[in-house]
Design a protein around this nucleic acid. Sequence first.
DNA 1: AATGAATGAGTTTTCATTCAT
DNA 2: GATGAATGAAAACTCATTCAT
Lengths: 199, 199, 199, 199
Amino acid sequence: MPRIGMESHRRKALIDATVETIHARGFQDATMAEIARRAGVSGGLAHHYFGSKAGLLNATMRALLADLSRETQARMGRSTGPRTRISAMIAASFAPAQFQPALISAWLAFYLQARTEPETRRLLRIYHARLVSNLAHAYSALDLGERARAAAEGTAAMIDGLWLQHVFAEGPPQPRIAIRRVEDYVDRQIGAPQGQSGD
Amino acid sequence: MPRIGMESHRRKALIDATVETIHARGFQDATMAEIARRAGVSGGLAHHYFGSKAGLLNATMRALLADLSRETQARMGRSTGPRTRISAMIAASFAPAQFQPALISAWLAFYLQARTEPETRRLLRIYHARLVSNLAHAYSALDLGERARAAAEGTAAMIDGLWLQHVFAEGPPQPRIAIRRVEDYVDRQIGAPQGQSGD
Amino acid sequence: MPRIGMESHRRKALIDATVETIHARGFQDATMAEIARRAGVSGGLAHHYFGSKAGLLNATMRALLADLSRETQARMGRSTGPRTRISAMIAASFAPAQFQPALISAWLAFYLQARTEPETRRLLRIYHARLVSNLAHAYSALDLGERARAAAEGTAAMIDGLWLQHVFAEGPPQPRIAIRRVEDYVDRQIGAPQGQSGD
Amino acid sequence: MPRIGMESHRRKALIDATVETIHARGFQDATMAEIARRAGVSGGLAHHYFGSKAGLLNATMRALLADLSRETQARMGRSTGPRTRISAMIAASFAPAQFQPALISAWLAFYLQARTEPETRRLLRIYHARLVSNLAHAYSALDLGERARAAAEGTAAMIDGLWLQHVFAEGPPQPRIAIRRVEDYVDRQIGAPQGQSGD
DNA sequence: AATGAATGAGTTTTCATTCAT
DNA sequence: GATGAATGAAAACTCATTCAT
């Protein structure tokens, strides 16, 4: 039953349902019908809004990127120096809103899709390049000189790797441990004394 | 025209074709028909050998794991001490036979599948646990004490993260750079002087 | 914002848009949404006015028939004898207002629909019967006797055939040539000397 | 149940079923499912053979054109002079195998489709051009001089028009009457005495 | 009166799987 | 053992129609 002003609400519901469905059923079995059902709308509406399944998946990935960027920007804005900026970027990646099973599934699906869909690749590449660039700037400000870029790429790899491991981790995500691992990496890169580094 | 001894040859061809197809068309669009076509056999034969698409995918993942395990065992067998054993494990992950675009696609696909298919998850988890365990043993032998396990997990994360980044890397894989990144991580964990660490 | 007197204006716009859309997109792909868009009204309004798509198509065909009848009546009213009445009927069929690409498409679509929709068939049959009857009367007045009806049907066939050929004619319709062909036919039926009959 | 060597048989069955279905249900409602059902095959097979609905419709039109060409060639081959060649072409158009309600529906559908599908238009245009060309040659041989082409186009229009009228004719097609009408046209073009020309 | 959001039935299309050969 | 023709269930997608606003 049509109500006006619902469009953005429905769009968001469909995008959320897409993430949920990928998580619950797997990327292969995430059908439009199931996504629509979870969003509480008809199957036709998803097409009406997003044109096709590919369109919905694309919009979902953009939403994921936007959420993560927002989280990162917010935390970077509150940081006071290069070292805390690095921590802000790390913390954003493992923030409770980001580091969740359903999102891990969805991110992974989009990484996979990036191999064959140029637009998906482009968007992920841009995000990754920006993250590395921000990290490299911070490392430069911490006097890593020409090693700054290598440290930035290593940090990004560490973040990605810890995400990936949660694909088959048992139990809920452990952001504390993940953050500790990356912070340890950073400390060693900049020659700072490490905190407690066991688990 | 059936020939004796063709079965294992065809099985291998189908498994290779599965990896190629996932890479070329994406996991979603890797159909049995396309896989069979690439393997040069009929669609029916794939079912005859593997029972179902799931069976073929499963066999493919097992083959991937077996190849990587074999590579790792071979290199570890030639190593002479804990530090070189760590390097052997790293080198195996980025060996030319392993670190290839098509394999990256396939691994990623199986990681994704692991979220919803228990058997896939079980196999990946076993492999990962063994890698971390091997790394932890080596770190223990290098006197990292209770930090050994954290270092081992960090090393594994670093390897995974660098694999993952090649999803949207431009150009062919750069195993040299990836290995250097992980070796740098190891050196800093064990307090050894680093090699040249820029790119 | 509803205005008095808009209804007939909108109805006409929708009927015109129906013809345009059939021409531009084909009968199969002439959707209500597209028709409404071209008419500059909402999709709902088309239903409000015409009840259903079938209703709109029906109204469109009736409008086409009415236009052609009006054109024919007007020209027949100005004619002064049986021979000029025949020419009036021919000229009406190829009048600039009738003999246009979009109308050719629409007529053809309705002929096709006539095969399965009785009401459409009924209306077309009535029009055709009246045309043949009028032609036959004129031929009788020209002393064709029992051949009058055959000549009338031949004339109608000639008109229809020349319309049909414009389906795949290149360039804009050529009413002059079409008229000359039919007039030549008439002249030969009544035994009159022919005009210049090449192109 | 698969049997080898059935492909051409099934293809023909599907093409025949397409014509039947267009006739019985109308072009709009000729669904793949219905066509397949009439052909006695599964819905998937039609796609397997023809790729898409458009592909099947295209193949059907080509088959219609091929049948008509074959009929025309056969009759022209048996003709003994220009006048009988013209009669052969006319007779072919109204041969019992061609001039049937279901075929009339299908031809009409393809004429309509020609307006928006270039390939369909191309094929119909070629056929029409060849018919007119053949007729013009015969008229030239009958000494019509520069009027030959006009007579040829008129003859083709007459044939098309008589086909079209059978869209809403009551009862079965009357090839005898149609042929008589066109023959009368031809006789008058070449100045021959007419046969009995009433109905 | 008029809109356009929303529906859902119906359509094309895909594809793993089966099975006669 | 091996093929590939054939199936049919399930998917994406379309679109006439409805209805709250």
